[in-house]
Design a protein around this nucleic acid. Structure first.
Length: 656
DNA sequence: GAGCACTGC
């Protein structure tokens, strides 16, 4: 009756069927776990030889031909075929970066943008930030004069269009991992379709998995003559990958999967020649446990005379990005790299990773292959505001690849109206709406910052806004939970998370931003440094918008009221049922366990920054408020008659 | 009152 545990991934070059050593042993529970092995047989070759080994190399001229002759090329290729690193270089070599033009490559994730840029700079013998650069939020590593190949997050591309709607500097844009259908990839796709109509010279490469390729091609095809020879978009498939992948499923469950992950990893380390290892775990804490166990065992092994060194690296989102980037660094032949990652194959139904690891092969195969586009399930307020800022007045007629539900459009418009960013005719307001859109933040944060001068607490609000952009300020080592909690309590205040984070930052500054002090207080030093960088950048925007520099001098009231002026729409009331309910739509919510208000007497009224959905709907970053503030600071949103005006507005929206 | 998903601007 025991359900098989899986999946186990096993990569081995040149092998068609099951791999040799590990797979043969996969039926033995003690030696089975979710472990991926990557062999790199080309590590000893020169960079140029390595480039020529990539599957995409054979198609170099064909790709260049298609880019020359079609406005849009949809390219299908698996991870590892080399498309992300090679195609931009082929384009540069073929002249697409002549006369100051730029080839841009977007990635859905920051880490990917930085690491792929690093790899390409390496291959070209360039210093990162010159010929090859990257641009992500709060971190622009490009040279406006010198950069020819630019990697950026898709969100950053959308933001760039606010300054240059036709993206005049770019000759080619490649949207990598487009099949992931992230919110900003989808927006970029819609925007680029519009740009292409005005700029026939702009070339687009959409890199996608097989499933969506035809959808992308048809979306971009401007040929309405019915004659296929006049198509403006085309699909090309890159066959193969550098390292074939085999997936194995365990036959029986593993009693202690942490232990067996460590055992399997060590076995591979001792038995196999070259190759790095990826071990998948279900959470940050497990990653850290496995990392420390592996380090310990590798040390013991080194003492017995094992020549090959094991470099053990943790990899999870809470890690500062320089630490995350270490898993992409190349290591010498004498070293084997083990990256311990959090499993991220979570389906949209939000089954937890732990559950996932205990599914049978049959059940695993039943899970949906492609996820619901983010556009279908997101808060669209930031999107709509940005589209408006890009001059797209009728957002309902925007060419969405998958149009979002009308209801979420209406909600977003209502919120933006309530924030004062849009007027009654759904037009961007001047100057507030334009300013809100300028901030690289959720509109509620932007509104809060812009109001902070009026509340006489811009200093405090700047800190709070910056701190809220950083995750995991409180460090909780699994073996020192009690000590960490004791230190963290020193900063906690009954008002909630916002003022607690203000306290943390102010104490950090008071102690001269000392890393030693952070360590003693179980605080994320790098995170706090990042918060101060973010704070400086946000401060520049406030200076530009002439928001007066003021402090409430320790008085919490103005600060709390200012938070409400931005986050009034995210208000919830505690009910006798023992849960919170949103004021807006009576939706049940709970305080997230990471909040300082968790396990405290629940305040009657709260506002929160965001909701995350796991087992339940949790509010993250929560602060207690007075209900009277909601009425006072957002009368248009909460007073009687609101529903009527919303209905009227809805009717107006539906008219478009 | 009950115990923690990730990414992006």
């Amino acid at each position: 009756m025991a359900a098989p545990v899986g999946p186990v991934k096993f990569w081995k070059p040149g092998s068609e069927g099951p791999g040799v050593s590990v797979s043969e042993e996969r039926q033995s529970p003690a030696e089975s776990s979710a472990v991926t092995v990557i062999y790199n047989p080309y590590a000893s070759l020169s960079i140029e030889q390595q480039r020529q080994k990539l599957p995409v190399f054979k198609l170099r001229n064909h790709i260049l031909y298609l880019v020359e002759n079609y406005q849009t090329l949809v390219i299908i290729g698996e991870t590892g075929c080399g498309k992300s690193t090679q195609i931009p270089q082929y384009l540069a070599e073929a002249g697409w970066t002549a006369e100051g033009r730029v080839v841009g490559v977007t990635q859905p994730r920051r880490v990917a943008a930085v690491s792929v840029a690093g790899r390409v700079a390496d291959e070209r013998g360039a210093v990162l930030g010159h010929e090859v650069g990257y641009c992500i939020r709060f971190d622009d590593c490009t040279d406006p004069q010198a950069t020819r190949i630019k990697f950026l997050t898709d969100g950053m591309l959308v933001r760039e269009m606010m300054a240059d709607p036709l993206l005049t500097r770019y000759s080619v844009l490649m949207l990598d991992e487009a099949h992931e259908r992230t919110l900003y990839t989808d927006i970029a796709i819609g925007l680029l379709k519009k740009v292409q109509k005005k700029r026939g010279d702009l070339r687009l490469i959409v890199a996608s998995a097989t499933l969506d390729a035809e959808k992308f091609r048809d979306f971009f095809n401007q040929n309405d003559t019915g004659d296929p020879s006049k198509d403006t978009s085309v699909i090309l498939t890159v066959e193969g990958r550098t390292f074939p992948v085999d997936i194995f499923y365990l036959q029986s469950p593993v009693p202690d999967y942490i232990k067996s992950t460590v055992e399997t990893t060590m076995k591979i380390h001792q038995m196999e020649n070259d190759g790095d290892i990826l071990a998948f775990l279900t959470g940050q804490e497990e990653v850290e446990t496995v990392v420390s166990m592996l380090i310990e065992q590798a040390r013991a092994l080194a003492r017995t005379g094992m020549k090959k060194h094991l470099r053990v690296l943790p990899m999870y989102a809470g890690l500062p990005s320089p630490e995350q980037l270490k898993v992409f660094e190349r290591v010498p032949h004498t070293v084997r790299k083990v990256s311990c990652c959090v499993s991220q194959f979570l389906p949209p139904s939000r089954v937890s990773a732990a559950q996932m690891l205990h599914l049978s092969e049959e059940d695993f195969e039943k899970l949906p292959k492609s996820t619901v586009p983010e556009m279908q399930r997101s808060n669209l307020a930031p999107v709509i505001l940005q589209l408006k800022a890009l001059g797209i007045d009728n957002v309902l007629r925007f060419p969405f690849l998958s149009p979002p539900p009308a209801q979420s459009m209406v909600q977003a418009l209502e919120l933006l109206y309530a924030l004062g960013g849009l007027d009654m005719h759904c037009r961007l307001t001047e100057p507030l709406g334009i300013r809100i859109a300028e901030f690289p933040l959720n509109p509620m944060f932007a509104k809060m910052l812009l109001e902070s001068g009026n509340f006489g607490c811009s200093q405090e609000i700047l800190t709070i806004a910056a701190m809220m952009q950083i995750q995991n300020i409180f460090v909780i080592p699994p073996n020192q939970k009690i000590q960490a909690a004791r230190q963290h309590r020193k900063f906690a205040v009954e008002e909630g998370d916002h003022l607690t984070m203000l306290n943390v930052y102010e104490a950090f500054v008071k102690h001269s931003k000392s890393s030693q002090w952070c360590q003693e207080h179980f605080l994320n030093y790098k995170g706090l440094v990042r918060a101060s960088v973010v704070r400086e950048q946000l401060k520049k925007l406030l200076v530009r918008f002439k928001v007066p520099k003021k402090s409430s001098e320790g008085d919490p009231d103005p600060v709390l009221r200012c938070i409400v002026s931005g986050f009034f729409a995210n208000a919830a009331k505690f009910h006798s049922t023992g849960a919170y309910r949103t004021i807006r739509d009576d939706h049940e919510l709970h305080i997230h366990p990471s909040s300082v208000l968790y396990a405290e007497k629940p305040p009657r009224w709260v506002v929160y920054n965001e909701v995350i959905q796991t087992a339940k709907y949790y509010m993250r970053d929560v602060t207690a408020v007075e209900s009277s503030w909601l009425l006072e600071l957002a009368p248009h949103f909460y007073q009687q008659g609101t529903h009527l005006s919303l209905k009227a507005k809805r009717a107006k929206v539906d008219d478009h």
